[in-house]
Design a protein around this nucleic acid. Structure first.
Lengths: 190, 190
DNA sequence: ATGGAAAAGTGATTTAGGTCACTTTTAGCT
DNA sequence: AGCTAAAAGTGACCTAAATCACTTTTCCAT
């Protein structure tokens, strides 16, 4: 566990500096969790008690429309944060599903604990502020890609940006992430 | 100017509390700016020195694709923050345009000043963290709407969510925001 | 009030991508 | 190794929405 916490500390220290004392305080507010492939981290209608930092593994965050079709909001793997941020922030029942595509391990942070460490350790508030900002920028890029690019170039773009992801994830899920049908995706780069 | 700064203070205090002393420190880090309709706040290739809080007015943030087509990332009006967040954060040349759809007024915050007030006044860091989080949640909603909804229901959704915006903005810009052609939009609700 | 430009509407045609139905390939089990 | 189920590929057809070309309406600025 020590070395896993060490990874999390490194993740924080990529952006802000923490004293040993601060870090001890911060780390004590995380819980460890481990899930097998296919298990759920978050489910629609269930409380969303945590936001999760992924130690190892891979998850997908998605919603299901009226027709039962799955739409992938995000893939998240090592070093990523994942949650139903909306439900978490407002402490409401989940609006999306998050489940494991691989056996995965997480550090879990409750809203209460997040606010506590943000107020106690200003560097942590700055960490989350900057992280959140990065996330915002990424989503803006994705919106732009949905508005401006064809399905095929979005696929090429993703191949370039996250080549490892394509290895780890079935193509039909990539299709769902890109907003394109499985069949259409299969006809690309052929 | 006093009452305009007062509006900004109220905006902060919707989320965090500030003492008079803190507020005096914070407000001194903003600059005022006023622009007429059609003037640019941010341009592609130009430095992005500020992020802007809109006192009054309306702007659009957009990018232009290879074919010269405009894609609207965001409309922003009173009480909204707007910038090329990506370029601003990394202090790189702008990647989008932001221009005024109406005569507008702004309070401008430089990156240096933002970091300064965030470090000096932890409540401000928390304010931006929470704001950024809200922004993230909004973008996630928009991505979901682009993935799951038809152009027509996206339009209906927007009509519901921001009825005032439709009044203030030509339909062709709404079309560009929704990722639909002007002609197709015009054939809806008819 | 009036002329010109921007915005909005509309018909005809095209096209990217969806859907359905089926086959082939690959990946996990026991 | 062998069986099953999930994933991927493919052909035929369909549809939402793009594009193009043109008309009508609305909005300003003089």
């Amino acid at each position: 566990m020590e070395n896993k916490l060490q990874l999390l500390r490194q993740h924080f220290e990529e952006i802000v500096s923490l004293t040993d004392e601060e870090w001890n305080f911060v780390q004590s507010h995380f819980e460890f969790k481990s899930l097998k492939k296919h298990q759920f981290l978050i489910q629609v209608g269930q409380p969303v008690d945590f936001e999760y930092w992924i130690i190892k593994g891979l998850v997908k965050a998605y919603s299901i429309d009226e027709k039962g079709k799955e739409h992938i909001l995000q893939f998240a793997m090592e070093n990523y944060w994942v949650s139903d941020h909306c439900a978490f922030q407002h402490q409401e029942p989940g609006t999306i599903f998050v489940d494991c595509l691989e056996d995965s391990e997480f550090f879990c942070l409750s809203l209460e604990n997040r606010e506590k460490i943000c107020i106690e350790v200003p560097a942590v508030a700055n960490f989350f502020r900057i992280k959140s900002n990065h996330g915002y920028i990424n989503l803006q890029q994705r919106i732009l890609s949905l508005l401006t690019m064809t399905a095929e170039s979005r696929y090429e773009y993703l191949l370039n940006k996250l080549p490892t992801l394509i290895q780890r994830v079935p193509k039909k899920l990539i299709a769902s992430y890109l907003g394109v049908s499985r069949e259409t995706l299969s006809r690309f780069n052929s």
